[in-house]
């Protein structure tokens, strides 16, 4: 199969990778670039484990051709912590503080979906949070804690605490 070199902008870093047109973004991120925070669950768009931010919006890397994401800004879960200090993003910290992480498989997707929502709408209602997280499934079913983690971050944000 004809491979070609493409440039992907992931977490503000440019990666040159050799891909074939059939390669899906999730596989390139995990296997070629080695950022395994992005998970692959269903591969069918149903579970949201593979969620990444593309130009700031939550999208499914299992349904995205890597070649089609050239020229876009991709953010994975590794990219939201403070790159210099390594300090977790306050939304990540809120997930830890609320015990919203059990096995952790859904967490990167949950956090990125929540972040995309809050970046656009800093004061979402509970309904709006639920609507934005519909596409992220948690097999450990910690939905209540996840919701609390997001709401607590929203509150801290509105008080200027984070």
């Amino acid at each position: 199969m004809k491979k070609q070199i493409i440039k992907l902008d992931i977490n503000n870093q440019i990666y040159e990778v050799m891909v074939s047109p059939t390669d899906l973004l999730v596989d390139v991120i995990r296997k070629q670039i080695g950022l395994t925070g992005t998970k692959k669950g269903c591969g069918q768009g149903d579970c949201g484990a593979c969620t990444v931010l593309i130009d700031g919006k939550a999208q499914l890397s299992c349904l995205m051709l890597a070649i089609a994401s050239e020229g876009k800004k991709i953010t994975t879960i590794e990219g939201i912590a403070n790159q210099e200090t390594g300090e977790l993003h306050p939304l990540q910290q809120s997930f830890l503080d609320h015990g919203a992480v059990q096995c952790g498989f859904c967490s990167p997707g949950m956090i990125l979906s929540s972040k995309a929502l809050i970046d656009e709408n800093p004061q979402p209602t509970e309904e709006e949070i639920k609507h934005a997280l519909e596409g992220n499934l948690c097999r450990c079913t910690g939905y209540v804690l996840i919701l609390e983690a997001v709401e607590s971050y929203v509150e801290a944000l509105s008080k200027g605490e984070v």
Partner: peptide, 12 residues
């Protein structure tokens, strides 16, 4: 439209 799929699906 808001009832189609999930947020990620609707973004794409």
């Amino acid at each position: 439209v808001s009832q189609l799929g999930s947020n990620q699906v609707r973004v794409m």
